[in-house]
């Protein structure tokens, strides 16, 4: 019953959403160049299925690669900031400043820096846009570790590395995954940003762009929905990882 509910409720919600959408388009008599309706979409998917599959794959792997880099770099940076006060004071303003830059402005900069390296640029953008929350959460998690937790092992003469591995690292996992949920969405946005803005892009973003240039409005909406689905898949992949590695942080009664 519980699992049935868990699956059924979101499906009903989505069906309702599509129904309302269809209804609004029909009631207002919008032509499909203003607003495509859900019933226009299957045709777009069937016609451009190959492009959806290859574009979806491009978008997916580049997002995951960028996020992977963000996890490695963000964790390393967070560790440095978590263990050293000086590093924290030095890096924090830089990071905040970098994070404040609208990432769209970086697309042309990167395109000029690494001309023609579309894959590289896309992964780089996904990485740049998404490492910040990870670095901050790991840094804060480590620097706010209660001294008593450290002392459990330190009083036995354990090395710093052992303390990190057995206590600090697992203890920051819930914060890490909290940040990863934000980062995965950001990385996805970063990938799409480059795909849409770059003149010769690939992936779902480029498919969206070609829909626009060819005035194929149902295709554009179909891409949007595909992006939403891919975003949901990525997000829940992180949730699943969180369940496996930091499930202990979930209290049984809320």
């Amino acid at each position: 019953m519980k699992t049935f509910q868990k699956i059924a409720v979101p499906i009903v919600a989505i069906a309702l959403f599509l129904a309302v959408w269809e209804f609004l388009v029909w009631v207002n008599g919008w032509p499909n160049y203003v607003m495509a309706s859900p019933s226009d979409l299957p045709e777009a998917y069937i016609r451009f299925w190959n492009l959806f599959v290859s574009g979806g794959w491009q978008t997916l792997w580049r997002t995951v690669a960028g996020l992977g880099l963000a996890v490695l770099f963000g964790t390393a940076l967070g560790m440095v900031m978590g263990f050293s006060r000086v590093a924290r004071d030095a890096l924090y303003p830089l990071l905040v400043g970098f994070n404040a830059i609208p990432k769209a402005t970086l697309v042309p900069v990167l395109a000029l820096l690494f001309i023609g390296q579309h894959n590289f640029n896309t992964v780089l953008m996904a990485f740049l846009i998404s490492f910040f929350p990870i670095a901050v959460s790991v840094g804060i998690g480590l620097s706010t570790l209660e001294p008593e937790y450290r002392d459990i092992l330190r009083s036995l003469g354990a090395s710093r590395f052992t303390i990190f591995r057995k206590i600090a690292l697992p203890k920051t996992l819930p914060e890490f995954f909290g940040a990863l949920k934000v980062s995965v969405t950001l990385a996805f946005i970063g990938t799409n940003l480059v795909e849409i803005i770059s003149p010769h892009g690939r992936g779902l973003g480029a498919l969206f762009l070609s829909g626009q240039t060819n005035s194929n409005y149902p295709l554009m909406f179909a891409v949007l929905i595909a992006l939403a689905v891919l975003g949901i898949v990525l997000y829940y992949a992180v949730v699943a990882l969180e369940k496996i590695f930091a499930g202990w942080a979930e209290r049984p009664h809320g």
């Binding site: 937790y149 459990i152 003469g157 206590i167 996992l173 942080a249």
Partner: peptide
């Protein structure tokens, strides 16, 4: 420096939740 032949208990139990 710390030695392995010492045991410590604190005011908080500080058990590892995981």
């Amino acid at each position: 420096s710390p030695r392995k032949t010492v045991g410590m208990a604190f005011q908080n139990p500080v058990l590892l939740e995981w």
